[in-house]
Design a protein around this nucleic acid. Sequence first.
DNA 1: ACCTGAACACCGTTCAAGT
DNA 2: ACCTGAACACCGTTCAAGT
Lengths: 229, 229
Amino acid sequence: MARRSAEPVSRRERPAKTALTRAGIVAAAVEILQAEGLERVTMRRLAEKLDTGPASLYVYVRNTDELHAAILDELLGSVDLAPAAASGDAGWRERLLQVLTSYTGVLFAHPSLASAALVARPSGPHYLALVETVLELLREGGVPDAQAAWGLDALLQMATATAAEQGLRSVAADARDEEERLTAAIRNAPQNRYPRIVALGDDLLSGTGPDRLEWMLTAFINGILRTSR
Amino acid sequence: MARRSAEPVSRRERPAKTALTRAGIVAAAVEILQAEGLERVTMRRLAEKLDTGPASLYVYVRNTDELHAAILDELLGSVDLAPAAASGDAGWRERLLQVLTSYTGVLFAHPSLASAALVARPSGPHYLALVETVLELLREGGVPDAQAAWGLDALLQMATATAAEQGLRSVAADARDEEERLTAAIRNAPQNRYPRIVALGDDLLSGTGPDRLEWMLTAFINGILRTSR
DNA sequence: ACCTGAACACCGTTCAAGT
DNA sequence: ACCTGAACACCGTTCAAGT
């Protein structure tokens, strides 16, 4: 089948090629993330989706890490900040936990992104809105400013790290391997050398889901309240 | 310059090629880490150093992540666990902080490894020894077993995440960029939308070093003590 | 069982040249 | 200013074939 010109075919084969914009690039990146995971959100794959060469993306995005941070901020738009405002319905602690749980949930849906978030913190508007909300709840709870400033970071860090760990566990086969190695190591630990590990046993690895995170966050909030700088 | 045979030259050019072992592979990997950073600890670079092809390594190491975990456990051998045993000299809290600070110090020296540790937890003997020590100190402090089991993980996580963040800041130019973006975002946050962020200002990013970590750990230890499961 | 060469299927980033 | 083709300098992992 000969064709006289490639144009009409290429018009049919792919969506109309729109001008590149940062927003469009990030949106395409999110689509790839949803469909194929963060490992596939590469400059080359993204360029292919946008029907251009990878070099073109560097006009809008400094490098791959910045791209990942932009994707994360985009997704943080779906964190539910509403509980924070609903005062009266529940205490500030409970509402703070709700917000942080919503944040974790978003990361849970994209485990690989949670890992990236540990390294590359975002700085976009959605991230700032989350920070503002958490700070406001801490203020409502009477946490002194200095303690809130340092506590905020740790709270988000804990939530992010938990999502990364838990998420990987359920997805990557390699992470499963690693977990099994750790479980085996703990089960087989000789009692004379590791008495406390043996004493606590499986509880060290128990409840790795939301229960554990909620306890961790609660414990840390209690600590923030009582620990001055 | 012609040579009749490559053998004598190759004997001079590189160290005598010893048989591959897992220990030898990990040792070579640590050398590359020290000299060139974790980014350069690739299967190919490692094979080159060991004078073989990358495929040969897969007999001893399942994949790159497992290699990274093995390197980390190796380095954890230099964590100073001695303070834990020196009871009487200082309270258990202080000694726990000393151990965790030593752990952070090791990771600080290899920031990229700290990031890897957040994703790929090790399960080797040195890691188990660290876990055992922390658990024993928590027991000494009267922390109930259930709380120690879940608290342990969070303590190590906080120390690891802090090292990863702080370490990257001092090394990677990209991370510097990111920090600057975040600093700028916080400084330029409009007061009407983000009043708490503006109120706390630079304190949100202050003291990102050992002081901050010590406060975080102390706060969390206080929380562990008071928060039952 | 261990080791290897060669291949497969990818990467990020830069740069000179075009529009 | 924006966009591109082409190149540079790499990756992890597998597999058939050797010892």
